[in-house]
Simulated assay, not measured.
Amino acid sequence: MKGNRNRTTLAALALGTILLTTTVACTAENKGPQVSQTDGSRPNTSESGTASPAPSSESTTAATGSASDSPSATPGAGDTAGASPAPAATALSWKTYTDPAKTVSFELPEDWIAQSSSPDAGSLAGALKVEVKDSAGRYIATLKTGIPAASPVACPAGQSHPYVVISSVPLDIPHAGGPDTIDPRVVFRVIQGYKYFGSYGITNVVAGADGQSCELRNRVLGPATKGDYSFGDVDAVHAFAVDEKVAPAKSFDTLDQAAKYVAHGSDFANVQRMLLSLKVNL
């Protein structure tokens, strides 16, 4: 227990160096006005991009760092669309992948590769699995359909970690509603462990309460007869142990690095455009 408190204290101190006059809140997801993320802005604080008016003391740290190294908060003008803008995609030419049955389609850069493979064991009938790699053969993301329904993540008391939604953009695809769900989003989120571990993907599943979670799932709940579906770098991201393999999830030494990856990274801009282009015909 003492070791856990020490790690929590060190993580809080690291987070405190990110912003000068603003605070970063790790809040639960909810629906409301959008906090827009323009180039270099502060991360969003919920899957729906809504800032919490009263974040808890456990997940909010006053800033003490340099303003020149920190993102700044910018009120959003895109409340209608509810988008968190990122830099424009840098790929000049794009193509469209469509499966033979025309149940899914998405755009990807012309020199990227979309390759179909056998669905995971236990997938529902008609399931798809499509792996995307860049021109150098590096893994980017996997699209899966027909995923069997799964129980909520068990998160014992004291085992959760703070998480932050860096980017959250609405995605218009079919989905099932219910408790602990939101409208589908394309998100980039990080969860705090010995580093900040990040992942991009699509989701309509609430990650956790009060800005705390054990696991951030990249999954959209679909109709019971069709199953769920996902599109992202990993199915879920958690606070990895020191001896665990992190890739293809991302890791950052600071929250500021994660924010800059989204705000300035051409790789993420191309990935985000690809994920946002997803069409699903169930």
Rank of each mutant, 00 (worst) to 15 (best):
S70K: 01
S93I: 07
V165A: 05
G193S: 08
V190C: 03
Y139F: 10
A127V: 02
P156H: 07
V104I: 15
D69N: 06
T145E: 04
W94M: 09
H161D: 12
S84P: 12
S135I: 05
A125E: 12
T103H: 14
K129Q: 03
V153A: 13
L128S: 10
V169L: 00
G76I: 03
Y200G: 02
S123W: 04
A149R: 09
E110F: 08
K102H: 14
E107D: 15
G82Q: 08
K95E: 14
A83S: 07
E110I: 12
K144W: 06
R189Q: 07
G178H: 13
I191T: 08
E110N: 13
G193D: 11
V130C: 01
D79S: 13
G177S: 05
S66I: 03
T60P: 03
I191N: 09
S93H: 14
A136E: 01
A101N: 15
C155H: 08
A176I: 10
A149G: 14
P75Y: 07
S72A: 07
T98A: 14
V187K: 10
V169P: 03
V165T: 06
G193I: 11
G193Y: 07
I166M: 02
R189H: 08
S123I: 00
S117M: 07
A154S: 15
A136K: 12
Y200F: 07
I182R: 05
I113F: 13
G78L: 15
K144G: 13
S123G: 06
D120I: 06
L128M: 05
G82P: 11
E110C: 07
I147N: 05
A77M: 02
V165K: 04
V164G: 04
R189W: 08
A149W: 01
T98C: 11
A149H: 00
H175V: 04
C155V: 14
P170M: 02
S72T: 04
A127Y: 03
A67W: 11
G126C: 06
V169C: 00
A89P: 14
A154Q: 11
D69T: 08
G158P: 10
G126P: 02
R138K: 10
G198A: 01
Q192Y: 09
A149V: 14
